[in-house]
Design a protein around this nucleic acid. Structure first.
Length: 726
DNA sequence: ATAGGGTTAG
């Protein structure tokens, strides 16, 4: 092909570039690659036709806008043109916006103005495309001024480019003001405006504007339908979604694959998986988005195994598909499976993005998998994955939930941008790790930074007060929630208050709070009171709280167990026997205690009395050794919370086999001397395990960190960060 | 020789 073109060219005489006789440029139509363009370009130089503007235009247009465009090449040629026409400037701008360098486009545009070349109606659509929020904030207004100055605002392409620039960079109000002022709108104007509202999540306004558009008689295109279906999906508005579906059929709108996918997504989001699936099954062609949408649909409806079935059937998966499936496991608290899937994702050589990283960090946080979390952090740096605020927040949360307060704070202090969630993560993280005072300090910094707290932030503040016994500060803050921060206390806040007062020994006041709260107390509030009764061994109030809880949640086994603990601790054996009988009759089973420990990137799981671990034999031998070592340091088993009907010796065996002890023994065997042992437990730590962990930290000079259901225990040199107050 | 809008995920 190139040689034919070259032959053709060589027949054109070198002197043929006289104005009255422009050279033929048909041979450029066959040019397919930059390689061919280079040959043609060389020929035009040899023959001299290069000096003719028509030829220059052809070469520049190809170099800038062809699929295999080469802006370095284009710029080199551009520099040889003494007086570039507006056309040449335009294609240069287009070239830079195509390769996602809108700032370079702006630089070219400014150079063009300096050379006194006026922009035309082609310039702005190229120039404004692909602006990010930052670029729009920096140049948007000025360029908007230029549009008016050069009298181009009535051109519909220019006007749509302006609306699109503002709305796609989140400056929706600016977009709207151009939109409202424009006299001639077409369907694209409406589309870009509506998608602007989608962008800032004002889906109800998207829906409203769509209705207005239809009323005004503007005919929607498939693109309009996709935008509005997306809004319906987010609003979970099945009614409008169905209407639009009907509209598609009634008006014979050509349903392309993107539109079909949007329909599948809308039905899935509205909980209509059967309709969603039906559309999916009837598709002639399916792409990775169709499949991912189905996977996500099942994930959202909690049917993670069905989601997996479709995920496994996919012939092609991208990082979004993998992340969707990982999230499906997260949603069901199946964190280990989430991590297993991440390993498969790596094996498949699919590159994760920052969304994947957030999901994996969440799994690490919940499993206490610090090693893997650290690895992810290094991976993010190494692979230059976008390290945005979401990632920072997830890292902070991971470090706190793994009990590493120092590193969590280090991430916090180096984050360039912080949002409400960042501050809240730090406050909650400090609180659960027992650093109440510091949490309050961060809270006042947050207020100074003019970040408004939300409900969760308030939970963190109350939790900080509760875990550190700051009763007066907690009372004061609770009173200020409405007056200072405009936040109405919800059940969780009342629960925190009851916890705060009750734990500090003000059981009567705590009970009063429950009785006087403006809404009917729920199980969170009664549960907090019940927990306080355990700490202070008040079996009478405990009975009231437990009875209320069981009215609300008859299936809540933990309530029975806690009441048993309390009876046992108060030596109320008769009551305990009756309760045990009732539990037997109702078939109530204790949730087995379960502890997780990560070792060399693998999460090991232990349940009470477990013998399933490959190292089980060694673990029990180690446990024997620990017990005898600790006895020298003053350890005696504390079986006061054991409520099983058995002799003292059997009780000792029962506490001896608790899952956190197995995990500690395993940790001591498998890690280097001096390494911190981190454990995550699903239930509250028992008194005996707590006592033993303190001694382990002293005798073996090991830091032991146990995260239980509600808080952290940092064991160091024989004492615990919770000050035995949990 | 050069024009604009869309789906999946924390």
């Amino acid at each position: 092909m190139a040689s034919i073109a070259a032959t053709h060219l060589s027949t054109t005489p070198a002197h043929a570039h006289h104005v009255e006789n422009p050279p033929s440029t048909v041979f450029f139509q066959n040019c397919k690659s930059m390689e061919q363009l280079r040959q043609l370009h060389a020929q035009t130089i040899k023959t001299g036709v290069i000096s003719h503007p028509v030829v220059q235009n052809r070469i520049m247009a190809f170099a800038c806008t062809n699929e295999s465009s080469d802006m370095i090449y284009a710029h080199r040629m551009f520099d040889t043109i003494p007086e570039p026409s507006v056309f040449i400037w335009n294609v240069m701008i287009k070239g830079y916006s195509r390769i996602n360098c809108p700032e370079d486009g702006v630089l070219i545009y400014l150079a063009m103005l300096r050379r006194n070349v006026m922009p035309d109606h082609y310039t702005f659509p190229f120039l404004l495309k692909g602006f990010t929020r930052d670029i729009a904030l920096e140049f948007g207004k000025e360029l908007h001024g230029h549009v008016l100055k050069y009298g181009l605002h009535s051109n519909i392409y220019v006007q749509n480019a302006l609306v699109s620039m503002y709305s796609s960079s989140g400056l929706t109000d600016m977009a709207r003001s151009v939109f409202d002022k424009s006299c001639g709108k077409d369907v694209v104007t409406w589309n870009v405006m509506i998608s602007g509202y989608n962008r800032i999540k004002q889906f109800d306004e998207s829906r409203r504007l769509f209705n207005e558009m239809v009323e005004k008689g503007v005919l929607p295109t498939p693109v309009t339908i996709v935008i509005v279906l997306s809004a319906c999906s987010k609003l979970k508005d099945l009614e409008t979604g169905k209407q639009i579906h009907k509209y598609v059929r009634d008006f014979n709108i050509e349903p392309n694959l993107v539109l079909e996918n949007a329909l599948i997504d809308m039905y899935a989001a509205c909980g209509e998986m059967s309709v969603s699936l039906q559309i999916f099954e009837n598709l002639k062609r399916r792409d990775v988005i169709s499949w991912t949408t189905i996977v996500k649909g099942f994930a959202n409806s909690g049917q993670v195994d069905l989601a997996r079935k479709y995920f496994d059937r996919m012939s092609e998966r991208d990082y979004v598909s993998w992340t969707a499936m990982i999230d499906a496991y997260l949603r069901m608290n199946r964190f280990k499976e989430a991590l297993e899937l991440f390993r498969e994702m790596q094996a498949s050589k699919t590159k994760p993005d920052e969304f994947t990283m957030v999901s994996i960090l969440t799994a690490c946080a919940n499993l206490g998998a610090l090693e893997l979390g650290e690895w992810i952090r290094a991976y993010i740096d190494k692979s230059r994955i976008k390290n945005d605020t979401f990632v920072g927040n997830a890292l902070i949360d991971m470090y706190f939930k793994c009990g590493n307060v120092e590193k969590a704070l280090r991430v916090f202090s180096t984050m360039p941008q912080r949002d409400k969630f960042t501050w809240t993560a730090v406050i909650v993280g400090l609180a659960i790790n027992g650093h109440g005072e510091e949490a309050l300090g961060i809270f006042s910094q947050m207020l100074k930074a003019s970040i408004a707290p939300d409900e969760i932030t308030c939970v963190g503040v109350l939790c900080a007060c509760a875990h550190t016994g700051m009763v007066d500060k907690g009372r004061k803050f609770f009173a200020e929630m409405i007056s200072q921060h405009g936040i109405e206390p919800n059940f969780t806040h009342y629960g925190c208050m009851v916890d705060l007062l009750g734990r500090a020994g003000h059981l009567k006041e705590a009970y009063e709070v429950v009785q006087n709260m403006p809404m009917k107390p729920n199980s969170i509030v009664w549960g907090a009171l019940l927990g306080a009764c355990r700490v202070h061994k008040d079996s009478e109030l405990a009975e009231i709280a437990a009875k209320k809880m069981l009215e609300l949640e008859p299936e809540n086994n933990a309530v029975y167990v806690l009441l048993c603990n309390i009876y046992a601790a108060c030596n109320k054996w008769e009551k305990l026997r009756e309760l045990r009988q009732m539990m037997m009759n109702r078939g109530v089973k204790k949730t087995p205690g379960c502890s997780l420990i990560e070792m060399n990137g693998v999460v090991h799981e232990f349940v009470a009395g477990d013998e399933a671990h490959p190292l089980s034999k060694e673990i029990y031998l180690k446990l024997d050794k620990i017990t005898s070592d600790l006895k020298y340091a003053g350890y005696t088993p504390d079986t006061s919370e054991v409520f099983l009907d058995m002799g003292e010796e059997d009780k000792e065996v029962a506490v001896y086999r608790h899952s956190e002890k197995l995990a500690i023994a395993f940790g001591l065997i498998s890690s280097k001397p001096g390494a911190t042992i981190r454990i995550v437990k699903n239930l509250r730590m028992c008194v005996d395990c707590h006592r033993m962990a303190k001694l382990v930290s002293k005798v073996y000079r090991r830091e032991v960190i146990v995260r239980d259901r509600t808080r952290f225990h940092h064991f160091r040199q024989g004492s615990c960060s919770c000050k035995d107050y949990w």
